[in-house]
Design a protein around this nucleic acid. Structure first.
Lengths: 135, 135
DNA sequence: AACAATAATTAGAATAATTCTTGATATTGG
DNA sequence: CCAATATCAAGAATTATTCTAATTATTGTT
């Protein structure tokens, strides 16, 4: 089931460059899908869908695009257990709630004013780089 | 590098049954390794090490044993990104801190009195089943 | 103790996700 | 326009893990 995001219709212009990454046609279309479908698709989901617009694209290219976008902080990669990676264009600091009954992933956020260092016993000198809370 | 846990020398007796799971020789040795080495080994690490005592054991058996132990709540399975699963005999509620410089995994715990529901905005009606905090 | 039923183990094949390799295309700077 | 560089495509390769089928061990029952 597709939940189109009205803020990003299929025709949304995507710039030639984002955060220093040259946005090729393939990267644009992959990124557009992630903005459009906020349901944390897998690389394969993206591949299936992007073929509507780029019939010649290969799965390897989808992986390449996703990796480039992740590397440049344009999207996030989310992993649950050993399931296939999912990708997400919601960059705000948030965690993921994996509904084990339906398999659906919901975004969750920290309540305002919560600081990680306040709730966790971290090794001294630790610099937190990224957090993944999985429920 | 091996960090032996003095509380569980190689000779520690392990009961015939734990939490309803029949502890076969293979499961005992796998479990003993996890108690002995608190460094979150992978299935393959366990395999290499358990061969000292059970030279005929197969990797599939190690996976079977680990799965049975996880299923019965005797050990925990920990995943980081898409790296291979790691296993851990520390059952107290804790998270994991993945040192990206060294690859080492440290246990971290919640500060006393912290309740997850107090810091996260969960979907209403959600029942938290398990948590994994990855840093 | 012997016997059938069940569970566990083994070795190797199979699978799934991802990465790698190589050659072809496209893009950019000079 | 040309050379240098980056990207893309297709398929092979890799890795962790699971599955399959055959063997062995254990348990409960006579």
């Amino acid at each position: 089931m597709v939940t189109p995001n009205p803020e990003f219709p299929a025709e949304t212009e995507i710039p030639d460059e984002i955060s220093g990454l040259r946005m090729t046609r393939q990267r644009q279309e992959v990124y557009r899908i992630l903005m459009h479908e906020r349901n944390h698709p897998t690389a394969n989901d993206v591949f299936m869908r992007v073929k509507d617009r780029l019939p010649h694209i290969s799965l390897a290219t989808v992986y390449n695009c996703l990796e480039a976008l992740v590397q440049h902080g344009i999207i996030r990669q989310v992993n649950f257990d050993r399931e296939s990676s999912r990708y997400c264009s919601n960059l705000s600091e948030h965690g993921h709630f994996h509904d084990s009954a339906t398999g659906v992933i919901h975004d969750i956020s920290f309540k305002p004013g919560i600081n990680l260092a306040d709730v966790l016993d971290l090794p001294s000198g630790a610099i937190v780089d990224g957090v993944e809370v999985t429920l």
